[in-house]
Design a protein around this nucleic acid. Structure first.
Lengths: 349, 349
DNA sequence: GTGAAAGCGCTAACAG
DNA sequence: CTGTTAGCGCTTTCAC
């Protein structure tokens, strides 16, 4: 293998512009103390030579690596990829994250980490040691994993916790789960529903609880009872089927159901079909996540859209801002979710 | 910002194992000339300290960067992400590519490059200069872009050309487009079809032509005419609609259509519906790509599945093998596609 | 077999 | 405002 070296280095630029290495470095990093005309001359040399700094060298000399690591749950991500159900969480993260990174000359690297492993720290430490990223983005359920969070805080590695609300360490970016559940519930109430069932997600994810909270709050505000209307799955289709069956099997069955993710919503739709219930005429349905499959459901499902792209983009922004020494936002950052109305909700009565 | 340094370096390991830096380096890189017991002692120290080499430093000193760059078309990728139609090309690339990379201690980085830009070289040169990857993976339509290919060859940067057949430079990995189209065509012929229409894709992609070739060959082998049965779109839904309309508007309309991708197949399905043709009773349909949406179509579409995960995995393997100095495969590598039978093909007559 | 020295491309810290 | 010096952590080259 040929020993691969940088084609054009800072040295070439310095020679070309007839200045010192340091001056070139200052121009590259937009640092002060360079006379405009010198700066211009250097910039011209850079352009002429097509010079681009080596990230490795920049990192080596103790500055930024321009790398941001997005950490996702290994098992779940691989399962989604293999299932080929169209789950586009990763794509949306890339869309928001990569583009924002590119704007600032950063790169986003995708890393899979096993939540359940007893040596999460080691996995993370290895990734950090190897890549030396400038910051990490944690996604659920990692965002609230005490081991991970404590470890990163200790390393004082800047990190954003997507879908988290805890402001103790790291920078949380909430997707407004409670508000989203409230919105969905209120949407149904506005359509005349009173017995609104809720299928919660896995308790491994804190957001599951927040969504329940939002539903509860909206029901309470409307003076409605939640009695016998709450069930839970683990985000899988099968668990959704079971939960839907239990909910719809009750004597006073709900006239509407909110499912905490699309898989469980699709399962509910299937169960309704089996029970001879038409959606939306006999049962209204709202799902969470708004992945592509719900558009193709029959009927297309009304869904809560969590803007993952916007959230990832925000996360990158926050890390870069932190990197520049700017103070973190004083209050919790919330990237709001929206309700996308389709055909699975009917007016009651 | 605190000047971030490696927590544990090769120096610590050397001290811990009481050997020189060089010996540690030899162990890390599995080089010869280390006595087994020394090696063991060093390895123990590495494990005890949780040492992981910094890839920046490795790269700096002229060795591998353990980074492989996957290059995708910017516009198309972003459009897919924004459309949220469930296109999972990127996910499948990550699935195959990342996991294979991880097996060998490499990382895969995703990069978007504008095909149409007049300074593709500059974009690529910048990415290469910044990241210093050990190899690149080109995806269509980049794989056969003469500018890109020439540039990389000149840099002598190892690269795999996914979906290409040209063996002049780089390492091509074909997905067997011609064979796949042949398979689809023969599948329809076996079901009694004789007037099998074909909607080709954008001529910007060489694979569009190969697919047509496969269809032509299968038709010829069966003694069937292709007269008036070929049309083309550009892979978009709208173009598929137009093509399907032209094909189905003919006096002797086809009894089956093969569309070069899922979007155009879905468009054909929609057009058939509008014309009062039932699929599969009045029109059989086979699509290419097998992205998630076709499972959710009514009826679910029979499709050619191009195993992108397997292809990406193979691509990574080839780059790493090349990296190790192994010779490239003497013949064209083909990752075969398979036909997934669903409900959109009916027996004729 | 193992070790010492030099240097990769860049930036921090200091000097002028 | 600009330049010089000294490394960053690792691998290469060459000694032993």
């Amino acid at each position: 293998m040929p020993r691969r070296r940088q084609a054009v280095t800072i040295r070439h630029v310095a020679a070309e512009a007839d200045v010192s290495l340091q001056t070139v470095s200052r121009v590259i990093n937009a640092e002060p103390n360079v006379r405009p005309e010198t700066k211009e001359r250097v910039q011209a040399a850079i352009d002429r030579l097509g010079y681009v700094p080596s990230i490795a060298a920049q990192r080596m000399s103790g500055s930024r690596s321009y790398l941001i690591l997005a950490i996702n749950d290994r098992d779940r991500t691989i399962a989604d990829w293999q299932a080929r159900q169209g789950t586009d969480w990763v794509d949306q993260m890339l869309l928001g994250g990569m583009l924002k990174c590119a704007e600032h000359g950063y790169r986003m690297l995708f890393e899979l980490v096993d939540t359940h492993s007893d040596h999460v720290e080691r996995e993370l430490a290895a990734a950090i040691a190897a890549l030396q990223p400038d910051g990490l983005i944690l996604t659920p359920p990692h965002s609230d994993n005490p081991q991970i969070v404590a470890f990163l805080a200790e390393q004082d590695m800047p990190f954003v916790r997507i879908g988290s609300k805890r402001q103790d360490v790291g920078i949380p970016v909430s997707m407004g789960d409670e508000g989203a559940a409230r919105t969905a519930t209120e949407h149904l109430i506005a359509h005349g529903h009173a017995r609104i069932g809720f299928i919660a997600g896995s308790s491994e994810y804190e957001l599951s609880g927040w969504r329940v909270d939002g539903w509860r709050a909206a029901m309470a505000d409307a003076g409605l009872s939640c009695e016998g209307l709450l069930d839970a799955g683990d985000f899988s289709f099968a668990s959704g089927e079971a939960a839907a069956l239990r909910l719809l099997d009750r004597p006073q069955r709900p006239t509407a159901i909110i499912a905490s993710n699309d898989q469980m919503a699709m399962a509910t739709l299937a169960v309704a079909g089996r029970l001879g219930l038409r959606v939306p005429d006999d049962l209204s349905l709202i799902s969470f996540d708004n992945t592509p499959i719900v558009q193709f459901a029959q009927p297309p499902l009304t869904a809560i859209d969590q803007s993952i792209a916007a959230t990832a983009s925000k996360a990158v922004e926050l890390i870069i801002a932190h990197q520049k020494g700017e103070p973190p936002p004083p209050t919790l950052t919330i990237v709001p979710s929206t309700l996308v109305a389709r055909a699975s909700v009917a007016r009651l009565g």
